[in-house]
Design a protein around this nucleic acid. Structure first.
Lengths: 188, 188
DNA sequence: AGGATAAGATAATGATCGCTACAGAAAGAA
DNA sequence: TTCTTTCTGTAGCGATCATTATCTTATCCT
């Protein structure tokens, strides 16, 4: 633990990391647009000026939540992709890992996908779309490394991506774990 | 054509059916929440009081759009379900029919699924969720009639439903027709 | 023409949005 | 203590939300 030097001025009365987790949960559950600053403040037990001093803006807070989400899930996806032995195995590993993530915390779905398909902000959609495209690119590269042709790889990864969008939406819609796992078994 | 009896009072300056189509497009493209009454008025070339006089409320207008959408798509899905000969054929017929619908008009996605996964209104979500559940129930009944056990039928229909959610989200995200068709081929 | 009826536009309602000016409070530094 | 720095709460900003009261305009019926 780095010796947190005592800072000058009045100390913050809440933990910024805890607040970020709370925001991440709220954003994943209801999407960026549906979570108001007033909601976030109520959940964190904080007034708007404190939230803005700590995080900048609602969008900045969301971006930090996405970064945290990505940091927490990258290892899972990277491992699934790296360990895949062929195209069907890639699909199976990625989709089962994704569904496990989506079902955590009573079915939050994917923060990125959920907001991508629910926000009205074009800038935000573009940014999240880039994230999804980057993840797809990584899977395509791996599929090609496993011997697939580029068209094959692109089609397979698009199929995986579509399935992920469906699983995220279904998990967030409240569909239970067992039905979704049974359904996923049939998509693999 | 029924002889539209001349009504008393000042005649309406716009066509309510055309306006409903415009609203249907806007709702399917951007979701219920993201389309404001001001947007609808601008698209229809109408002022708010006229819109409210013609349709009641934003929610009423949306409900009428959903009814219209359902009336326009029910035949397609009913045919796909009725013509299916076994479980794989049911999936193939329903998903290809769905994707064709989703790709119309530069990728509107499904009005019901798009709004279901983007609105913050719990009442609206419940109503749309019931619509989706009803469609699933129809498919499950057909699957059982085709010889599947109930668990089999439920799992297969859930797989179809998850794929539909993914396809709708993907189409609305702007992914092209050919990549999506290639991906769908791999999910069948 | 004159009255009845209904749709038009203007303009405003209260509520909520993301965000912030301002002043008071709590800490270290002098 | 007094100064400086940084956070906190109050209270409110302008913008936008869905919705509507009011008045004017256009048409039918007598």
């Amino acid at each position: 633990m780095i010796a947190t030097e005592r800072k000058r001025g009045r100390p913050r009365a809440f933990d910024a990391e805890t607040g970020l987790d709370i925001a991440l949960r709220a954003f994943a559950q209801r999407g960026f647009d549906a979570v108001g600053v007033a909601d976030l403040c109520a959940l964190m037990g904080v007034k708007p000026p404190s939230l803005y001093a700590a995080y900048g803006s609602k969008r900045d807070l969301f971006d930090r939540a996405v970064a945290r989400y990505g940091a927490g899930t990258a290892a899972v996806y990277d491992a699934a992709i790296a360990q895949a032995t062929d195209l069907p195995d890639l699909r199976r590993r990625v989709l089962t890992a994704a569904l496990d993530l989506y079902l955590r915390d009573a079915g939050l779905g994917c923060l990125v996908i959920s907001t991508l398909s629910s926000t009205a902000d074009p800038d935000l959609r573009d940014a999240l779309s880039d994230l999804v495209a980057a993840r797809r690119a990584g899977m395509i590269a791996r599929a090609i490394a496993l011997g697939a042709t580029r068209p094959e790889a692109e089609a397979e990864v698009m199929a995986i991506s579509v399935a992920m969008m469906g699983l995220s939406a279904a998990a967030r819609a409240g569909l239970g774990a067992e039905p979704l796992r049974a359904a996923l078994d049939r998509l693999i």
